[in-house]
Computed example of a mutant assay.
Amino acid sequence: MSYPGPHFDSAPPRRRPRARTVALAALVPGALLGWLVYEAVGAPGSGTDGAAARPSSTAAASPTGSTGSTDPASPSATAGDDAKKPGAPSPASGSGPLKGKTVVVDPGHNPENVRHTAEINSKVDIGTNWKECDTTGTSTDAGYAEARFTLDVARRLRTLLEEQGATVRFTQDGDRPWGPCVDERARIGNEAHADAAISIHADGAPAGDRGFHVILPASVHSGSADTRPIVAASAELGERIAGTFVRVTGSAPANYVGDGTGLDTRKDLGGLNLSTVPKVFIECGNMRDSKDAALLTSSGWRQKAAQGISEGIVSFLHGS
Rank of each mutant, 00 (worst) to 15 (best):
K267P: 00
V248W: 00
L274E: 04
R18A: 13
I241L: 13
D195A: 04
A77M: 11
G312N: 02
D264V: 15
I230T: 15
S10K: 12
A294R: 05
L36N: 13
F170C: 03
I230R: 10
G270K: 08
V246A: 13
A118L: 09
F281Y: 14
T135A: 15
H116E: 07
S298M: 09
P111W: 10
T249F: 01
V41G: 02
G30D: 07
G271D: 11
D71A: 13
V28R: 15
R54T: 12
R54C: 01
P29V: 04
A53Y: 07
A23H: 12
G127K: 02
D209V: 09
H193Y: 02
R155C: 06
L295K: 15
A83C: 13
A218Y: 00
S251T: 12
L269R: 05
V231S: 09
R15F: 09
S56N: 14
Y256E: 03
V220K: 03
A92W: 00
H109F: 02
G250E: 03
T48M: 01
S139T: 01
N190P: 11
L295S: 03
N121E: 04
S299F: 02
A233Y: 05
Q307A: 15
Y3V: 06
G50M: 00
P4G: 06
G238R: 12
A207P: 12
K131Y: 07
A145F: 07
K291Q: 13
A142W: 08
P17E: 14
A31K: 08
D152E: 14
A252F: 11
I230Y: 10
V314S: 03
E184Q: 14
S139L: 00
T244N: 10
L98Q: 08
W178G: 01
D82W: 11
S56M: 04
A293L: 06
G68E: 07
R18Q: 14
L27M: 07
G165Q: 05
E184H: 08
S76T: 13
G30I: 03
V214S: 12
V41S: 02
G179I: 05
V168L: 06
P253W: 07
P91Y: 10
Q303I: 01
A52R: 13
S93W: 00
G319P: 02
R54I: 11
D195N: 14
D71W: 06
H116A: 06
P75F: 09
L157M: 06
A61S: 15
A23K: 07
R288L: 13
V41E: 09
G258T: 08
W35K: 15
E132L: 00
N121Q: 10
G100R: 09
E146H: 04
A218L: 00
I215E: 11
T171P: 03
A142H: 04
I198W: 01
G250K: 06
G30H: 09
G189H: 03
G262C: 10
H193D: 14
T265R: 15
I309G: 08
S310N: 12
H109C: 02
K279E: 04
P29A: 06
V124L: 12
T244A: 03
L36P: 00
F316D: 13
